[in-house]
Simulated assay, not measured.
Amino acid sequence: MSYRFVTPIPKRAATGSVAAVYSASARELGALFAPHLSPAPDLHAALWAVLRESMLAGTAPRARKEAVAAAVAVVNRCPFCVDAHAAMLHATGSHDTADAITRGEAPDPLVAWARSTRSAAPDPWPFPAAHVPEYVGTALANHFINRMVDALRPGSLLPGGVLRAPSRRAAGLALARTVRRTITPGESLALLEPGAGPAPAWAGDGPVATAWPAFERAARAGGALLGPTARAAVLEAVAGWRGEHPELGGWPGSVLGAVPEDERPGARLALLAALAPYRLTESAVAAWRSSVGPRGDAELVRVLGFGAFTAVSRLADRVAVVA
């Protein structure tokens, strides 16, 4: 599988938390989890913990959480993630739901809610309070994953055109045993560094409440790689975002006018990751690398991760208060 701009740590060379995430995800997800994030091991492990404890473990039906993930991928325009979660839905036997979601439809209130999580006014929660950490965690984790995939691994997972729908079903058949696997909650938490801070109210008091603060700390750390004016510009732009896909002409340059020239390339990367990751270009990455001196894959992942999390945090502010 090819990636842009970064070289993932290969499975044979992985150690520490990267090796642990690869091993667990191959067993529980059916694929190596987010190799493109492996240059930043703390972010890689923390995101895996959030995804595992919200979407793979827990008591809410896996098929319903895959429906949430697929619907989020559709509204974020992440073709790779749409294919992956549609295949997982087929693996659970939810063929009609998978087909409806990939057509851009909302066949039930849960899918409608998932689609609305990118908007300025999300729908009320259509699930019981006991399942809030799982469904909200699944939606928010996938909003982040979609952005990082679109930035670093764009394009579809499966053949396009008329082959895509049958390919999704075929991939689902291969994963049917994986989605039926019993996942013991909390096993990913040993990968996390302690002392990450308090959990948001929506995360409850279970494993998601431990995983989310570690993820937030790791993702926000990338902001230190931006200059202060650049960081403030990213935060301000995302604060005013209402879920729309940015205009094609002039953006993000139109919101970077007050950012010093030497800080602008980093701000551009973070804003693209936040609001339009599918528009990240080789020239934008090259401009950032040349503007800040020698910086490797880990720093690039962290700058993009900061931008992606800034958008996810804005979505969380809206989603988490809708009860």
Rank of each mutant, 00 (worst) to 15 (best):
N76C: 14
I101M: 06
A60S: 14
L235H: 11
S25G: 10
E247C: 13
L157A: 09
L248I: 15
G307S: 07
R314P: 13
C81H: 01
A308H: 11
V72C: 15
A151M: 14
R289N: 05
G266C: 02
T138F: 02
R314Y: 11
F309P: 10
A320K: 02
A100E: 04
G204K: 08
T184A: 04
A176K: 04
H131F: 02
L280Y: 06
G307H: 12
G172D: 03
S23K: 13
S254Q: 14
A139Y: 09
G206L: 03
W288G: 06
A49G: 03
A24C: 01
A287D: 03
A224Q: 14
L152D: 05
T117F: 13
G206R: 01
Y135C: 10
R314S: 05
A308V: 06
T182F: 11
V68N: 06
R268P: 00
T310W: 14
R52M: 00
A258E: 13
P41E: 07
G186H: 12
A174R: 09
G93I: 03
G30A: 08
T310Y: 09
R164K: 06
G137T: 12
A121D: 10
D42V: 12
V319L: 14
L269C: 09
A129Y: 06
A323Q: 05
A311F: 14
T184C: 12
R153M: 09
P252W: 11
R181P: 00
G240D: 15
A201S: 09
H143N: 00
G161T: 10
L51P: 07
L173M: 11
L226S: 10
R12L: 15
A91D: 05
A308D: 05
P252A: 11
L280A: 12
F5Q: 02
P194N: 03
M55S: 07
R103C: 01
W251F: 14
A274C: 15
F215S: 03
R181A: 11
W251L: 14
A286W: 07
A67H: 03
V255I: 12
